[in-house]
Design a protein around this nucleic acid. Sequence first.
DNA 1: TTGTAAGCGTTATCAA
DNA 2: TTGATAACGCTTACAA
Lengths: 357, 357
Amino acid sequence: MTRQYDRRKVTLKDVAAQVGVSHTTVSNAYIRPGQLSAALREKILAAAQELGYTGPDPAAKQLATGRAGALGFLFSEDLPYAFTDPAILSVLNGVARSCDERETDLALISAGSNLRNRTAPVSLGNAAVDGYILYSVAPDSRCVMMAQQRNVPLVVVDQPRLNGVPYVGIDDRGSAYRAAKTLLDLGHRHFGILSLKTAHDGYFGPLTAKRRDNIAHSTIAMRLEGYVLALQEAGIAPEDVPTWEIPINSEDMGAQGVRHLLNRAQRPTAILAMSDRVAIGAMQTIRALGLNIPQDVSIFGFDDIPAAEGADLSTIHQPHERKGTEAVRLLSAATGSNENVILETELVLRGSIGPAA
Amino acid sequence: MTRQYDRRKVTLKDVAAQVGVSHTTVSNAYIRPGQLSAALREKILAAAQELGYTGPDPAAKQLATGRAGALGFLFSEDLPYAFTDPAILSVLNGVARSCDERETDLALISAGSNLRNRTAPVSLGNAAVDGYILYSVAPDSRCVMMAQQRNVPLVVVDQPRLNGVPYVGIDDRGSAYRAAKTLLDLGHRHFGILSLKTAHDGYFGPLTAKRRDNIAHSTIAMRLEGYVLALQEAGIAPEDVPTWEIPINSEDMGAQGVRHLLNRAQRPTAILAMSDRVAIGAMQTIRALGLNIPQDVSIFGFDDIPAAEGADLSTIHQPHERKGTEAVRLLSAATGSNENVILETELVLRGSIGPAA
DNA sequence: TTGTAAGCGTTATCAA
DNA sequence: TTGATAACGCTTACAA
């Protein structure tokens, strides 16, 4: 940005000179109105107005006070993707609301393009913020290190669990378990799983044993564990459950992935999808193949995004907005303690599931 | 945020002392790697690492250089609403991408709750930004004044036209004209208009003459003009075109508003909606009333949000993302000139329109 | 190639 | 109630 707007910026001093008081007094007029006579304050404010003084410079104020009055929200995804993801948006929503209440600014920082080359975004180190919310960031991301190095309060939402850093999340394993259990109780014995990415390599294909043992995202790992646990309890071996991994959480990927699950001699009667977007995409394919939901195939999502209701999709409701508000709260509290918040999820049963054929 | 993280913050000086060089040299190691020997630089960086120095403090840097490395995006809406509006999100998307390329941070600032009490958000004055993008802000909003007072570069997207401030937008009037003309060419003579809000009073009802003359949003005024112009050319008087005003751009409001248009002795055969969200909501109601689209009622939207395609809605395509990228470009250019960018729109014809019955 | 010194615009401390 | 003065941590001529 050019500096040509800075034509001799008006400062506290100018106002002070104009009124004939010290610059401290002018500062007080803004910061501590009680510290000077109302009359003088009026006079100062009037002079400021006249001179075009627009109030304390943020940078200077920040340097002097040590606080920025802003917090950073760090995505692990490209911003462009983030703005299409209803779940992220809901979290962001909660964050924004809380920031509003606290009169705190919100800086959006995307780690997106940087995940690939393992370089943290410049802005991460540069941003004038008092703390960071790390939202679903890959544990091996350089961002995590950089954020920790900045020596400001941190809060992690969903990903990853970090020692000494407050955490906001849900019981992914338990929630997944309940989803699988619900389908088992309906008599299903032939399952297929649509998994979200286990690594950042763009892999689209069956979840191999090797990949299963090296899952970068703890939420994904937990959900998988939950599914598998429930199935095992019912005597179904994990090897017998076709599991397809999808690199992007999108309807389109769900639509493509589910084909590979349905294309089998023993077609699954129940699909466990790790997200609603994936599930909704899958539903389109299922119907396009001439199968009925839930008569031929039951399907269970995860997240309870707004579109899930319209799609009549059974799912796990996550309190996305509260994740955001809790994160801001923890950041403000910043007790230095390691308070973790595990929010409750809810089983939402809709028309996408039914008894096994 | 607490300062307890500041346990004796490590500064340039500490690093300098450790290495045994001056203050400036350490600064150069970060800013101008070419100004010192590679060996020395290595040594300095190593010492910094060891001491836990995380790089120049953003506030101090900003104060010294005069630039923040961030820009502010100012919404006129509540953030919670903004995150549900596909059009806003697309613009934001473009902004975010451009910021990414320029390694610039992005601060989101909502004027939302403040429109009501006419108080500009504190953060607006406080945010450490080099410039603002005002996105579709009400002309009478205090935000506009405050933003101008900050004496930083400004760019307006959509709303309002400000003297001496670069503007990014579309030809709202011409686009609306084409929409209406398209329906006229299909033989329609009985129209209904679903208008977005003309003022911030939450009004839901017929657009009165008085309100029509006092439209706060220029884009709304222009679209209305475009519709009316086309209709007048076809010999249809504005008084004969029922027009319903809606306070919120949402599907739900569209669904409700259209009832009042269809509930008439002379039922319109064509509906002009000022947004796709409103149009999509209206389509639900139209069908719920047992009417067929387009056989009984044709409907035309505005925006071309992603959902418009699925809804098979004819509409005006706006290049939302480019609005964002252009805004950032103008802000960076900040020539001080008054460059305006009027982006092209496109008529998108889909199944929601057909010949008049 | 490195160092000196003067800001940048505030806030905060403490004395007047 | 008001005012010196000293930070705050950095960048940047300019000098060595």
